[in-house]
Nucleic acid binder design. Structure first.
Ligand SMILES: [Mn+2]
Ligand SMILES: [Mn+2]
Ligand SMILES: [Mn+2]
Ligand SMILES: [Mn+2]
Lengths: 219, 219
DNA sequence: TAAAAATGTTAGATTAGTCTAAATATTATG
DNA sequence: CATAATATTTAGACTAATCTAACATTTTTA
């Protein structure tokens, strides 16, 4: 009854894709997993036989309840391990994703639930992504991109959309972290760049694309 | 340059066998890993090509320096994770081996060294087995089986030889744990069974085989 | 709506790790 | 030391996961 690492990675990828659109395509999976579409087709047949997805040739696929549960569980484990690495092992937020890619496949419900407890049943990982509870339920997260906040309003950083190490390191460099208070002083009409300050500190400039990738607690 | 889980398990098994005898045999590996000798032969050829072992058809094999380093590193990771699970996650000593079998393959030197530090650079795992340092060096452990201790002498439990869950649970049940002080009151001449007390508590009887599988700090 | 483009599937290979059955080499023993 | 027993290797096969090349279907667009 246990799934291979590969199957788990497919189900995780499919779950993430189905957050956008219920019906998932072969090429999208191939792109995310960085493998060939032909390979994906083979695996889809296997997952369908195991009743983890509903699949019809040329028509796309969707997760069954069973498949969704596995995908969500892998995400839960990934995010709990990431938080563990940051909070307990003192890693930076740009160092934990790769290690969590491995740790997410460790099989022990007891371990993951104790990790959850040890971390105080957290609602979000170090990048602000929500952590489902042991029943696979996500808490409501009400966040919006900083780019949607009006000038003069003070908002609190809750996470990031872009997760790349370079982006995370850039935020470190300009001194923006989760929990920081951001005040928008002005938005340049020409290119939508923002003049902001962090925790009442000195002013910094960020581009529109950066503002779009920072999430703040929504009002 | 990275090795598969399978290769890592072979090198770990070979290292353990070579602690007894430098020259390791095909069937011993097959027995430990619970696979067929024919399968082992195939893998030995691959490990030899990678210069992880010295192998000659029909003659047995031994680890190269490179192969030993990998085997020892897997053991280091296994034992550090076991100790982590017991000390930080509150698992019992009979619950951790299976999870550590998975965790030992996580690849991150940084993580394992921080784990080592977090645990205070421990010298032994929850079963008393020695933990090599980051250079693959084992500390000197001077332990002897309880069966070799003379009556009336007080000795301190340092570990176990037999590692099975049933044995560990049996020790839990009769109240013997690492660090406990054992006093041998008498040894039955007929079957070598021992009448002992733990931490000055009430007397318990253990068989010769149990006494042989408990390690105490050697004098 | 017919042709072109994009998307998806099938066919045939390859690699890692495993197996069983048969062959061969080494070791033990009468 | 010749033979029997044991240990080891080889040969041939299988499964999971991957690939490339060719073919099929669906979607887009002129
Ligand atoms: Mn991640
Ligand atoms: Mn993964
Ligand atoms: Mn163990
Ligand atoms: Mn292992």
């Amino acid at each position: 009854m246990k799934n291979s690492f590969t199957e788990e990675n497919y189900l995780k990828a499919i779950y993430k894709l189905s957050e956008r659109d219920e019906l998932v395509t072969t090429t999208d999976i191939a792109t995310i997993l960085d493998i060939r579409a032909a390979t994906v087709t083979d695996m889809l047949k296997k997952l369908a036989v195991k009743k983890l997805i509903r699949y019809e040739r040329y028509k796309g696929l969707s997760l069954t309840e069973k498949g969704r549960a596995i995908g969500v569980k892998i995400i839960r484990k990934h995010r709990l391990w990431e938080l563990f690495l940051v909070q307990k092992m003192k890693f930076r937020w740009d160092e934990v994703h790769e290690i969590a890619e491995q740790l997410e496949h460790i099989q022990s419900d007891e371990l993951i639930n104790r990790l959850d407890e040890m971390l105080g049943f957290p609602k979000a990982d170090p990048h602000g992504d929500p952590i489902p509870d042991k029943n696979g339920v996500f808490g409501k997260t009400r966040t919006i991109p900083l780019s949607q906040v009006k000038p003069k309003v003070v908002s609190v950083v809750a996470g990031v959309i872009e997760n790349s190490n370079t982006f995370l390191q850039y935020l470190d460099k300009i001194g923006i972290a989760i929990g920081d208070k951001i005040t928008i002083h002005a938005i340049e009409a020409y290119d939508q760049s923002h003049r902001i300050s962090v925790n009442q500190g000195k002013e910094v400039f960020i581009s529109e694309s950066v503002a779009k990738n920072i999430l703040v607690v929504g009002k």
